[in-house]
């Protein structure tokens, strides 16, 4: 830092701190009158903080009953997907400095799944769809005695969809999923894509059969909300379009 030579007493590289207001949509199933309600908290945060840090501060210092999920807190486990200022984001990957702090940051549970408490939703319908596309390698024949070889080109074919962390940000950003919970949803299709386009996998026909359902890929209305919501930058709508095209080209 060049500043140290001119003003050695100044605290070098001090991170600015400021007050942020968080506005939560809360729900307590054990309350006398279980109705969702809004509640605001103001905490002091640092310029390097993420939304999750501010939420921790609320939970640890102001109100321990605020309920949300998080595990790794570094964008890998996919536990803390929530609706931040109207868009699905991971709280641990959203920096406060990227948000408009002149207004309260609005935090709501992801949409379309039953709310258990505050920001915690029941993920079971989401994982049920995930299991239905058989997210595992299907290969015939004997157990191989050496690894299944794959060229870099074949690996690159489905590279994008291997990045999914199953946070449900995409599925719960989908207007079709909000109104029709039977729809498989973007995440299940992304994970089917990961195997359908894997040259070592032999279950593509079965998976396409599953997704050719009334509630399958054809429900996709290409709103691109999922692509925008994905914290891993997966081009979700593109993957769904590729599955749609595979269904047509492989059928004939």
């Amino acid at each position: 830092m060049t500043a140290t030579t001119t003003s050695p007493a100044a605290s070098v590289g001090e991170v600015p701190s400021f007050d942020v207001t968080l506005r939560f949509r809360r729900f307590d199933p054990d309350a006398a009158n279980p109705e969702p309600f809004w509640q605001e908290f103001t905490v002091t945060a640092h310029g390097t903080d993420r939304v999750l840090d501010a939420m921790h501060k609320v939970k640890w210092e102001l109100d321990g009953t605020l309920t949300f999920r998080r595990s790794c807190a570094h964008g890998i486990c996919g536990s803390d997907a929530m609706r931040i200022n109207g868009r699905n984001r991971l709280a641990c990957k959203t920096l406060l400095k990227d948000l408009d702090l002149s207004k309260p940051i609005v935090i709501e549970p992801i949409k379309g799944l039953p709310v258990v408490k505050d920001l915690v939703v029941d993920m079971e319908p989401f994982f049920a769809s995930y299991r239905e596309v058989m997210p595992f390698l299907i290969a015939q024949g004997n157990t191989p005695s050496k690894e299944r070889r794959q060229s870099p080109e074949d690996r690159a074919r489905y590279d994008d969809t291997t990045k999914c962390i199953l946070c449900a940000a995409c599925t719960t950003s989908c207007p079709v999923f909000w109104t029709d919970g039977q729809y498989f949803g973007p995440a299940a299709i992304v994970n089917a894509h990961r195997f359908i386009f894997d040259s070592r996998d032999e279950g593509a026909a079965q998976r396409l059969e599953v997704l050719n359902d009334k509630e399958g890929v054809w429900r996709c209305r290409t709103t691109f909300n999922c692509t925008d919501a994905c914290p891993r930058g997966i081009e979700v709508t593109k993957a769904i379009a590729e599955v749609k095209r595979a269904m047509i080209t492989r059928a004939f």
Partner: peptide, 16 residues
Amino acid sequence: MPEAPAGTLYRGREGM
């Protein structure tokens, strides 16, 4: 401060 308990509109982009 319990207020109108409606959720906000999803802020989709051009596609939505």
